[in-house]
């Protein structure tokens, strides 16, 4: 009897182990499919683009001669837009996240806002571009400028930052808040000195993932009037005369890396395709750099937090 039962369990256990292995294999297969596709794409891009890559490529303006064309205006444009995006989206997104998570009462209005924020994160980016065209370009009269582009992408990544901030705040144990209150801290003091520092790694990761998404966006930039041929840099934000800071660059016409890349892929000359690949490489490096920064910051901050 007991031998029967033992045999039965052995069979059952073996079957479950097989299932276990089978799932691991399927899972690994799915993972490899994604990773391999990415690797193949990356290698092909590198092989096509690397011969063009170099300091000249980074420091040259676009040209009709594929060998002389470069991405200077494009990467500077991308960087300037990212600066505006970060300055607009980060304070707003983090503040909104903190309010929703720490202050907002649980009622119908908050629920509606929450559902909306989550849904906004999934709206196609072209919709943001068209909204911004009507709002920033025509209604506010900001023109087809760096400022408009930065604000558009800020709108686009705002939901991402809000959601990430809230997730990060939720990981801070309530005991931290309660301990702060017990010592007589106000809500704001508790948040400023304990909750936000504890959630900082998660918030930063969210911000940088948002910015990394924004830097690759093409459709909204084209919708708000990114131009393809720009052979100059926006005016410098620092000026030699008083007041030493100039905001002219915000109103300058712009191009960005993805827009420049797109233009090169549709040119008749085959040689422009190598340029497009090289520009893609620069873009991927910028994105990887931002993600790397996120990982490093998270690592450093995690080491500081103990609870």
């Amino acid at each position: 009897m007991s031998a029967d039962r033992a045999a039965y369990y052995r069979v059952a256990i073996r079957r479950r182990r097989h299932l276990d292995v089978a799932f691991a294999v399927v899972g690994l297969g799915c993972l490899m499919l994604g990773v391999l596709t990415l690797t193949v794409l990356f290698v092909e891009m590198a092989v096509q683009g690397l011969p063009r890559l170099g300091i000249d490529f980074l420091m040259a303006f676009p040209s009709r001669h594929p060998g002389e064309a470069g991405v200077l205006a494009a990467w500077v444009g991308s960087l300037a837009i990212m600066a505006v995006t970060a300055l607009a989206a980060v304070p707003m997104g983090v503040a909104a996240g903190i309010y929703l998570e720490e202050y907002a009462p649980r009622n119908l209005l908050t629920t509606i806002i929450e559902i909306n924020v989550t849904n906004l994160a999934g709206v196609p980016s072209i919709i943001y571009g068209l909204t911004a065209l009507g709002l920033f370009v025509y209604l506010f009269g900001l023109g087809h400028s760096v400022l408009t582009a930065g604000l558009t992408l800020a709108l686009l990544i705002l939901p991402i930052i809000i959601v990430a901030t809230r997730e990060a705040l939720r990981t801070v144990p309530d005991s931290q808040r309660e301990a702060a209150y017990a010592c007589g801290a106000s809500t704001w003091q508790a948040i400023r000195d304990h909750v936000v520092p504890g959630a900082a790694p998660g918030i930063l990761t969210g911000i940088i993932i948002g910015l990394a998404r924004a830097i690759g966006e093409t459709a909204p930039l084209i919708a708000i009037g990114a131009v393809t041929f720009v052979a100059f840099l926006p005016p410098s934000p620092v000026s030699p005369d008083f007041p030493f800071i100039s905001l002219d660059w915000l109103m300058a016409p712009f191009t960005a890396l993805p827009v420049q890349m797109f233009n090169w892929t549709v040119r008749p000359e085959e040689a422009f395709r190598a340029n497009a690949a090289a520009a893609a490489f620069v873009l991927v490096l910028m994105t990887l750099g931002m993600n790397g920064l996120a990982i490093w910051l998270r690592y450093r901050l995690r080491r500081q937090t103990r609870w």
Binding site: V76, A83, P235, S236, V238, S239, D248, W249, L297
Partner: peptide
């Protein structure tokens, strides 16, 4: 983070400033 934003602002405009 603030510093890197400021830095990128600086890099964004290494061109002469007159419009």
């Amino acid at each position: 983070g603030c510093l890197s934003v400021l830095l990128s602002l600086l890099v964004a405009g290494c061109a002469p400033s007159e419009s």
